[in-house]
Amino acid sequence: MNGSVASVPVESDQGGAHHVEYVMGMAVSIDIRDADPPASAVADVVSWLHHVDATFSTYIDDSPISRLGRGELDIADASDEIVGVLRLCEQIRVETDGAFDAFVVPAPNGTTLDPSGLVKGWSIERAATMLEQAGCANFCINAGGDIALRGHPTQDTSWRVGIRHPESTHELATVVTAFGPLAVATSATYERGAHIIDPRTGQPTTDLASATVVGPDLTIADAYATAMFVMGLDGLDWIAAHPDYDAYMITRDARATWTPGFDRYRPDASR
């Protein structure tokens, strides 16, 4: 994004720190609930996110990922960071039998190299680790619906993450309730005309309005959510084999379907 930086640092009178940064094409909310977070913690995360954007954005023509996709940058000359991300993408492609694939779907930069389906979650998971290393234990980072949770919002309360209703901007389909560490990622096409391409067919997916994945690691959850969206309801059988990860899917006809394990995050849901 060209200079599209909006930055809102906040001094909270409750202790903690809250910061909203516009980066990677979205508003990233960093909500730290610890009493006295180090002053540098948020700043370090913010500069990390801008670094990720500059490195991996497929909207920036001269980003390393764009140059790599056009063959102007050789993989042998790419940073360990880029190679590491692409390795992760490949591992998840194999694992998902091609439902997640960073190498075949057309990207905004005109190439078909686009690890965005993993990079957002990966960068936020890293950001969460940075905050932990800085001594923070209780926080929520929300990057366009991809969420990393740690600890709890206040003493003895759990985080409550609303999962959006696909047909209405002001309603929720359900609420995920949990203590951290936990990752929540939602892949969706709420807008009419928007679509996610099935890398296995090259065609837009049609079954789902949204796919939410909950689990321990946001890198994995983000990529799985993309894969789940592509797999459709069949993805529930696939992800049910991963005991740490659960999914909640909403179909285009507004029916919700979820893995049995997802109910552990809904203690107050009627069932």
Binding site: S29, G162, A173, T189
Partner: peptide
């Protein structure tokens, strides 16, 4: 289901400047 949430997953997929500024 919507009571008392800390954050929303999926919400910002439809958002552009207005919503982002309002959220901030």
């Amino acid at each position: 289901q919507s009571a008392n949430v800390n954050t929303i997953s999926g919400a910002t997929y439809t958002s552009i400047g207005y919503a982002q500024s309002l959220q901030s």
